[in-house]
């Protein structure tokens, strides 16, 4: 059975959110709210109520980066000092912990920040070709609801969008 990808564009945000919660409630067979992608010009923390909890794993990479940074920092600095014995200076020990703590702190942040950024690129699906149903209005002032449906449900979804005053509906066959 062939599938279609439908996108409805809404200029009234409340209507768009209502459409999503309708999808959630009416249970069109084979159409679940988990298949819905919301495209929006701004960030909507409040949409999670209708869209359902979708987990974000970014902070784990931050934690990993931070832990890596601080342990790597310690061993890197101490090992470098221990293999560079010209360093006894000013009556200070070879491995000078107070100054190493400062550098470990910086390395913690350095690796945490870069780890987070690289994970962000990966987890949020950037650096890929955009979906062919992209509308430039999404970056202006309209909200788009993107959903993959079986052909049998196509009309019902489009009706739902129309009901909620969709400005424009685009569709595309998925091969």
């Amino acid at each position: 059975m062939s599938k279609h990808c439908v996108m409805g564009l809404f200029s009234d945000f409340d209507e768009a959110f209502a459409a999503i919660s309708d999808i959630r409630k009416t249970k069109i067979p084979g159409v679940s709210v988990d298949d819905v992608t919301l495209k929006s010009p701004i960030e909507h923390p409040e949409i999670e109520e209708v869209l359902g909890e979708r987990p974000v794993h970014l902070q784990k990479f931050t934690l990993f980066g931070a832990i890596f940074g601080v342990t790597f920092g310690f061993f890197f600095l101490a090992a470098a000092q221990a293999s560079f014995l010209v360093q006894p200076q000013g009556g200070k020990p070879v491995v000078a912990l107070p100054s190493n703590f400062v550098l470990m702190y910086e390395m913690l942040i350095f690796f945490a920040v870069w780890g987070t950024f690289l994970a962000f690129l990966f987890l949020s699906g950037l650096l890929r070709k955009r979906h062919s149903l992209y509308s430039e209005n999404v970056s202006l002032d309209q909200v788009g609801i993107l959903i993959d449906v079986d052909d049998s449900n196509l009309e019902r979804v489009k009706d739902l969008f129309k009901q909620h005053k969709a400005v424009e509906i685009r569709e595309e066959e998925i091969r």
Binding site: F75, Q81, A82, L85, P88, G90, G91, P93, V94, V95
Partner: peptide, 24 residues
Amino acid sequence: MSLDNLLSNWSQYRKGHEEGGFHD
């Protein structure tokens, strides 16, 4: 290797000039 060196000489590497320093 450097980790070995670090661990076996740790107490020596932590001496300041008050305790005679790293070397004689």
